[in-house]
Design a protein around this nucleic acid. Structure first.
Length: 464
DNA sequence: TCTGGGGTCCTAGGACCC
DNA sequence: TCTGGGGTCCTAGGACCC
């Protein structure tokens, strides 16, 4: 299956300046069962075999190959509940390996940028791409261009993707779902709109009636922006399809689903409310939290975990050139289970914003001391950084005593810089705080972790 | 054995002010 | 000491996303 058009060598020379009045064309490019596909790139023997990937702590199933789907392995199911059944069916299982997935994601996004200058990375496995204003090779349709993009991603990364195209982001999302769907029943009459595998383009539909027919075959709960609660509410009001939602009165939608829901409805009608966000908005908070591998009663272990989580959060803070002016800590017992339940959190505002790990850790440990109660077995802890601001633009402190001397600030900055550099060069956790503990009996479970194929030569099986 | 982690936005209601 | 109207700001909770 060799594509006749391999895609432009680079994006910019193909993309023309867009006329402001031109009809927007959004494509949603979505990697098929992304985490599973990433594992398969390095394990070709797993092609066509049932594969699943578990969430952090091996808690539940977050990705399934189609083969696992066919076997009836449910999405989101607790692993301990389906483990026996899955293994007996020959399902291959992986713990999630986020460094690997992050790397593969970046490669996919790089390919997308060869096809359009306007790319919004929406999540680790999805991107919105503007396809209007691109001067296509002579005689090539937009749909065919998308098919070429799809081939290029697969050839360059090994990751299969699906593409939905429409006049709004929400319709592009719907189209993406349709591109993965079996064409049956009344949809058969629209089969020409499905002629390229893995691509569905709303602009290929011949009429408004055809669009109605399609939207009638999309469950309302499959519409982007309609979650569990609104889905149940809509069902109770007899609204079951995307078409029915689209045709509800504005004021009703506004009342029951807020302006967010109204935007969804307008987008289903083809009126664009959500635009491409190429520059991600400034981050407002950083959360670092994990469930423990086993329940933890010991305060010292909780202090260790909070130290480790704050270390990670502070690294992220510095990587993004930010400082935090507020921090929070929370701990909780399991939602389920027999033991007594407890949840508590504490926040504090810092006198001076900082990104210096030792300060942040010190505050976090103090907050934990405030909320920890004996007699409970804790399941999870987390730290939150908020009130974030860029390092440079900060106002000069009016409290030089609290802010520390210039010299001290400088040496703190240097220390963090060196520590971050060592951990980047030699791998996460090379340098860490003693207060995070050595044995870490609370560490999360990862019993089926794949090797670090993309970040450590020694873990590549075929390089030796 | 006991269900992930990391985000954002909107709304209602209370406090406070004039 | 008897009760209006309107504004702002903050917070908790709900809803959604992947």
């Amino acid at each position: 299956m060799k594509p006749s058009f391999a895609g432009p060598a680079s994006g910019p020379e193909l993309s023309l300046p867009r006329r402001p009045d031109s009809q927007a064309v959004y494509a949603l490019v979505d990697c098929n069962c992304f985490y599973v596909s990433c594992e398969r790139v390095f394990r070709p023997d797993l092609t066509r075999r049932p594969v699943i990937v578990l969430s952090n702590n091996d808690g539940c199933i977050i990705a399934r190959s189609p083969e696992a789907k066919v076997l009836g392995i449910p999405m989101g199911a607790a692993w301990f509940k389906v483990k026996k059944q899955a293994l007996s069916l020959g399902v291959v299982v992986f713990s999630s390996n986020y460094p690997l997935y992050g790397d593969m994601s970046a490669r996919v996004m790089d390919v997308l940028r060869r096809f359009s200058t306007d790319v919004e990375v929406y999540s680790i496995d999805e991107a919105f791409v503007r396809l209007d204003g691109i001067s296509l090779p002579k005689g090539m349709s937009l749909t065919r261009y998308a098919a070429a993009l799809r081939h290029a991603v697969f050839r360059r990364t090994g990751i299969p993707v699906s593409i939905g195209i429409g006049p709004t982001k929400t319709l592009a999302k719907v189209g993406n779902r349709l591109s993965k769907q079996q064409i049956t029943g009344p949809l058969r009459s629209l089969s020409h709109a499905f002629r390229y595998q893995g691509v569905f383009n709303f602009f290929d539909l011949p009429s408004a009636e055809a669009r109605d027919t399609l939207l009638e075959h999309v469950e309302v709960t499959d519409v982007w922006g309609v979650g569990h609660r609104h889905g149940a509410m809509l069902h109770s009001c007899g609204v079951r399809t995307a078409r029915a939602l689209r045709d509800m009165p504005d004021d009703w939608v506004r009342r029951r689903m807020s302006v967010v829901g109204l935007h969804t409805v307008l987008e289903l009608r083809g009126i664009s409310c959500l635009t491409l966000e190429e520059a991600p908005p400034a981050r407002r908070s950083i959360l670092s939290s994990r469930s423990f591998g086993t329940l933890v009663a010991n305060k010292e272990y909780l202090l260790q975990a909070v130290t480790a989580y704050m270390t990670r959060a502070a690294e992220k803070l510095r990587r993004e050139g930010l400082e935090a002016s507020c921090i929070g800590v929370f701990i909780k017992t399991p939602r389920h289970g027999k033991g007594p339940r407890y949840f508590n959190s504490a926040q504090t505002r810092l006198a001076v914003p900082t990104c210096y790990s030792p300060h942040l850790i010190q505050h976090a440990r103090r907050l934990l001391e405030q909320i920890w109660k004996p007699g409970y077995r804790y399941q999870k802890a987390g730290v939150l950084l908020f009130g974030l601001e860029p390092v440079r633009s900060r106002q000069i402190s009016m409290l030089p005593l609290l802010d520390g001397s210039e010299g001290q600030k400088k040496s703190e900055k240097k220390l963090m810089h060196v520590a971050d550099a060592i951990n980047t060069r030699f791998g996460k956790g090379t340098l860490e705080y003693a207060a995070a503990g050595l044995g870490k009996p609370w560490k999360m479970k990862q019993e089926h972790l794949s090797p670090r194929y993309t970040s450590d030569w020694n873990e590549l099986p075929f390089v030796r």
